[in-house]
Design a protein around this nucleic acid. Structure first.
Length: 292
DNA sequence: CTTATTTGACCGAG
DNA sequence: CTCGGTCAAATAAG
């Protein structure tokens, strides 16, 4: 509750910063690129504004149970592990493999679609391979889809994402990203980031912002949810601390990398062509280093 | 035949 | 013990 308020405060601060940035850009009368930056800033501003609203509402209105408790109609739990320990034939191979990432920074985005058809593509510029689905307790739409980067084996890209319906809104999808894309894939670029790369150019370490892969669902709906929303779980939980511990305390994911000292670490990364998303979770990169 | 999706099971954290 | 995340086999689709 109080953390939510703190979050709102932080967001307000970010909003203020964005405003200043916006003002600065207005003064300078940016060149051609300024237009794009201004659009980005505008988008950021609205996003932050929305986030503030969300945070505030969460703060003031204690969400006891937005959706009906899992005890709605019978056994809430999924029958996933009912036939437990039946075939031990397979358990042998998994010796010494960490099946779970514990300290993977993640950030979530909300994607609104117009129809279920959009659910299929839900493209953010990367190719994902679905690897699982789970029933989440307490969620109105318990189905949660898990995706991994298609180039996981080929390029060792460990980025992953989860897609889940927002409670109440079948058209609103909550996409949670884990990790960064280390793969180089030239899929269709995003709307706001027309990559003019003539022949597969490497990106610059500091792309000055260009990660709006989530702009998929923004059709005529108008009600495009905040492209960026913070982990809506426990604020002070692990995820939040991950971000804050690794980077500047209040650095929002979309803050310019020049603002955080973490940038230095990324610069001396053995992989020069890290993806643009790297700025979002530099801490994650440090974490990834153990895999190199 | 190759590749992607589905589904069940295993594992670890809480 | 329960729940969520991931793996891998099985299945479906191109």
């Amino acid at each position: 509750m109080e953390e939510r308020c703190a979050l709102a405060t932080e967001l307000a601060q970010v909003l203020d910063t964005v405003r200043q940035l916006e003002a600065h850009m207005g003064v300078k009368g940016g060149a051609d690129g300024g237009e794009t930056c201004r659009a980005l800033v505008s988008s950021m501003r609205s996003s932050v504004d929305r986030s503030i609203h969300i945070a505030m509402s969460s703060c003031c209105v204690v969400l006891g149970a937005p959706e009906s408790p899992p005890s709605a109609g019978g056994s809430p739990r999924s029958g996933g592990s009912d036939q437990a320990a039946d075939s031990p034939c397979r358990g042998a191979h998994a010796a010494g493999q960490s099946k779970k990432r514990k300290t993977q920074p993640k950030w979530s985005t909300q994607v609104r679609v117009n129809s279920v058809e959009d659910v299929g593509p839900l493209d953010d510029g990367f190719s994902w391979r679905k690897y699982g689905q789970k029933d989440i307790l307490g969620a109105k739409y318990p189905r949660s889809a898990y995706f991994r980067c298609t180039h996981r084996h080929t390029q060792g890209c460990y980025a992953s994402k989860q897609v889940q319906r927002a409670h109440g809104d079948p058209l609103l999808f909550d996409v949670v990203y884990h990790g960064n894309h280390t793969c180089v894939q030239g899929k269709h670029c995003n709307s706001q980031t027309p990559q003019p790369a003539a022949s597969g150019e490497h990106r610059q370490p500091q792309p000055a912002g260009g990660q709006e892969r989530v702009s998929v669902g923004q059709k005529t709906d108008g009600g495009v949810a905040a492209p960026f929303s913070f982990p809506s779980k426990q604020a002070g939980a692990d995820t939040g601390s991950d971000f804050q511990a690794g980077c500047a305390t209040t650095a929002s994911p979309f803050m310019s990398p020049a603002t955080s000292e973490c940038k230095a670490s990324t610069t001396e990364s053995p992989m020069g062509d890290m993806d643009f998303m790297l700025q979002l979770a530099d801490a994650d990169f440090l974490d990834n280093s153990r895999y190199l």
